[in-house]
Amino acid sequence: MTAGKTRRAGAQVAERIAFALIWTSALATLAVLAFIVLYILDLGLPHVSWRFLTSAPEEMGREGGILPTIIGTIVLTLGAVAIAAPLGIGAAVFLTEYTWESPVTRAIRFGAEALAGVPSIIFGLFGFIFFVTYLKMGWSILSGSLTLAIMILPTIIRTAEEAIRTVPNPYRDVSFGLGATRWQMVTSVVLPNALPGIITGIILAIGRSVGETAAVIFTAGTALNMPTSLVSPLRTMAVHFYILAIEGISLEKAYATGAILIITTLTVNVLANWLIVRAVRRHRRKS
């Protein structure tokens, strides 16, 4: 009787302690997130000005702005998405609409999963040995974009596949029933309805590309000049930030660049999130 009561009381104490720890962990995690963002913004934003965004760096970045690195980031990211999006969406369409589950689809899914787990430094090594050296593209927009494209491909495939699977099956029946070919069905019914999810995936991939350093530094290079062609080397914001910080060139400029970098990636993520929420709502309304 008493033993039971004590055990009961003990369990309640244990529960209270455990829950307190869990609450603390959750709040601490949120606090860390807030701290990182606010820390960079607080120390970086005062050094951000219109001139900083629109002028070229001087003395390796000690003075001046970051315009070429902004352009570089945009060009490299757009290049990567332009390559990876058609491939990724195509692969997702194939997996969902053109085949049954089979050893082939399992192999493709395994490939995508394995690729998703490859660390970015390996992509950097690979891009360097394959695109830069073997295919003689040099440190260039082309090498960088191709490397990034392979890196973001799994994300685009996975999100596109998930989005396509939420398109209700009766739409497919109706479309086929009205004499659509498979490809017509895909383009007229499946893709338009999966579009929000697909775009979300692309935006997440953009976020990953913008923040990437290891895979970019060995494939696109670190040149501070404005890129002029597909084979020009360039430096992205993330690479620039890394070099400013690690070589101690200018802390002030590093904070400012970091602030721009974090604002960009946060915006991209918030946008993606907002699209997800909207897509989920639309989906609920329909079903």
């Binding site: 963002v37 960079i40 997440l204 993330a238 930030f241 974090i262 990636t265 993520n269």
Partner: peptide, 24 residues
């Protein structure tokens, strides 16, 4: 609220983590 917050955490570039680690 936590889900998107965790996604933001995942979206922060690793160089930023390294830098904040270095400075703080």
């Amino acid at each position: 609220l936590i889900r998107p917050a965790i996604q933001l955490l995942a979206g922060i570039p690793s160089v930023i983590y390294g830098f904040v680690g270095l400075m703080v």
